[in-house]
Each structure stands twice: as C-alpha cells, then as structure tokens.
Amino acid sequence: MRIMPSGSASLKAPMQAGADLASKGGRALPEDLRRKIAAIEASGGKGAGRCLSTGVTALDASLPGRGLALAAVHEVQGSAAAGFALHLLASGLSGEDCILWCVPEGRRDPLYGPGLWQTGIDPRRLVVAVCRDRDEVLWTVEEALKSGSVAAVVAQMDKDRSRGGPVSGKPVDLTVSRRLQLAAEAGGGLGIILSEGGGALGPSAAATRWRVDPAPLFDMRDRACWQIALLRVRGGAVPDKDWRVRVDRNGQVSI
C-alpha cells in the first residue's frame, strides 16, 4: 500500500460540528490547536492520518493529507464515477489488498475482468456483493468497513447507470454517511460511495466529494479522460478549478 504520512496540517474532524468549525474558521484556528485536534482524531482509528495517492499530483496537492484519506468515506458523483473509483483503487492500493464492490441487485453493467486487469486491478482480489436493496448495500458497506479486513469498499448506490439522466437513487444522507464514516474509522479502510446519477448536494460526513464526468479523449487509444471537480474537502479548502485528467494507454496519468 502506498501510504503517505499526513502532514501536520491534516485536520479530519470526526464530528460534523468539528467539520463546520473547520470550514467556518479553519484558518483562524491556532496551529497548535489544529495539531491537538488531529492527534485526538488520529488516536481513534487504525488508518487515521494516512493517505493514499490518487495518482494525480495536482489532485493530491489539493487534499489536506496530500492524498485520499484512509479510514474515511469518499463520495464520487457523476457518470464516470465508477471508472474514477477504479482508477483510485488501482493507483492507491497494492496488488494484494482485497476490495469489496457492492452493487444493488438488477444492475446490468457488472464489472468486467479483462477491463479491470488493464486498469491495474487484479480481479482475483475483488469480491462483488450483490445486495437486494439499498439498505443491504449500506449494511454490507458498514460491516465490511468495520471489520477492517478489506482495503477498500466501493458501493454503487444507483439502481442503474443513467448517463447524465435524473437521479435514480436516493442520495446518501448525513446520518448514513456519518455511520459509514464511523465504520471506516473503526476499520481503517477506504470507503467510496458512488452516485452516478448525480448524488447528494446536502451535508455529508464524507471526507471528500468529487464529481467526475467523462471528457473527450485526446487520443482514441487513451484509456480514459475525465473532467474532475472536487466539490467538498473536509479540513481543507475546496479548490475552485476543475481538472481534466487523461489516462493514456499505458496507464500514465497527465493533466
């Protein structure tokens, strides 16, 4: 696992109140108080204070820990959310970490092994859980995160991929994301919630919220190209720009 030690500036508030405080007057907090809060939080979970590289330097730079925080839940919206999540898993995790991928029943676009393999994920370490309904997806994600035995849990919340269409799934609300966040803190794994339809704009306890949409390829042989926006960062400033990230055929990432 490529893990970066988080900088002292890392601030991950476990309480929503803390997050509010941070966003309201984050810069006003004295440095030592910040450090104290970070230390209190880091003592809680196993993976707290550690980060995963997103594989894109510019993205890493705008995150508080210079990477995607472990022991936390991240939300990814937009119709290319699943592809971006796979990219995050491929670039951040080592070849031996187990991944649990939760989907609701009835989705007609299951993961495809050869494609995963080309992305850089060994499909043999990935387990797909087909859940009957939304509650079961959330239960599975929570249980898996809590157990700490999986490196990453990804949940596709929407019943179906509606490419840019109306939101088909109910967005994950504050209570639910709070539960998942606590579970992630207990287990130390990475939780990724995908809402391809669009997702919530309301409050959430997730550490980050992204919006990823597909962008036209530079070269038809490239693997992917995304328009990425960081909508929310807990304990950090939201950058006011988007990135266009290109993954070429060899997996090289550029902006």
């Binding site: 699943a82 592809g83 796979l86 676009d109 299951p110 993961l111 495809y112 092994g113 050869p114 494609g115 995963l116 393999w117 080309q118 992305t119 499909p123 043999r124 991929r161 042989r221 693997r223 055929r249």
Partner: peptide, 13 residues
C-alpha cells in the same frame, strides 16, 4: 489471466 496485448477492454460489461 489475460494476454497482455489484448486491445483495450471496458471495465463494465
């Protein structure tokens, strides 16, 4: 599991 020179495949089938 799959040949390395496989043309690009989608992640979702």
């Amino acid at each position: 599991p799959w040949p390395a020179d496989l043309p690009i495949r989608p992640c979702f089938l």
